[in-house]
Computed example of a mutant assay.
Amino acid sequence: MDMTTQIDASNDCAGVSSLLNRVGDKWTVQVVVALQDDARRFNEIKRRVAGISQQMLTRTLKSLERDGLVERCVRPTTPPQVEYRLTELGRSLSKPVKELAEWAISHRAAIRDNQVRYDTNR
């Protein structure tokens, strides 16, 4: 492996790691799942994502919008109504995110049992 290949691999790993940190974040996953079927207003998303604060939802939506995964749509009403929807890129992420969430739900008891067994044997 030459030096150029090593540098490219290092940049790829750093970029992938950063992206996985963002899309693997618990709030990102839940917001993407909340938006997978339809556009939603801020408070509707907040109701669907249990435990998220207003500040964290704002940050998450801004990050997703910056990455091109969510689109913010302002309707010209009085007062203005704002909806968020997944972009095409965001929709392409929603299927694996939903599958990951389903995997976590279906395996959480087994993982919890393994953690207890591990901690007991330490």
Rank of each mutant, 00 (worst) to 15 (best):
D2E: 08
D2R: 04
D2Q: 03
M3T: 09
T5Q: 10
T5R: 08
Q6R: 11
Q6I: 07
D8E: 10
A9Q: 08
A9P: 00
S10V: 01
A14N: 06
A14M: 06
G15P: 01
V16G: 00
V16W: 05
V16Y: 05
S18N: 09
L19M: 10
L19V: 06
R22I: 14
R22P: 00
V23W: 05
D25N: 14
W27T: 06
W27L: 11
V29H: 01
Q30N: 15
Q30M: 11
V32N: 04
A34H: 03
L35Q: 04
L35P: 04
D37Q: 11
D37G: 08
A39Q: 07
A39D: 06
A39H: 01
R41V: 07
F42N: 02
N43L: 10
N43C: 02
E44Q: 11
I45Q: 02
K46N: 05
R47T: 11
R48K: 13
R48P: 00
V49R: 03
V49Y: 02
A50H: 09
A50Q: 11
S53W: 02
S53Q: 03
Q55K: 13
Q55T: 10
Q55Y: 06
Q55P: 00
L57Q: 01
T58N: 09
R59W: 04
R59T: 11
T60H: 01
K62T: 07
S63L: 10
L64I: 03
R66A: 12
D67Y: 07
G68H: 02
L69G: 00
L69F: 12
E71V: 06
C73Q: 12
C73V: 15
V74N: 06
V74R: 13
V74I: 15
R75E: 14
P76D: 14
P76V: 11
P76K: 14
T78K: 14
P79D: 04
P80M: 05
Q81F: 02
Q81C: 07
Q81K: 15
L86S: 02
T87K: 04
E88N: 10
E88Y: 07
L89V: 05
S92F: 06
S92H: 08
L93P: 00
S94Q: 04
P96R: 03
V97D: 00
V97M: 10
E99T: 07
L100M: 09
E102M: 11
E102T: 10
W103N: 10
I105R: 13
I105A: 14
R108D: 12
A109W: 07
A109I: 14
A110T: 13
A110R: 14
I111W: 12
R112L: 12
D113P: 01
D113I: 09
D113Q: 15
N114Y: 12
V116C: 10
R117C: 07
Y118I: 13
D119K: 14
T120R: 15
N121F: 13
R122V: 11
R122P: 02
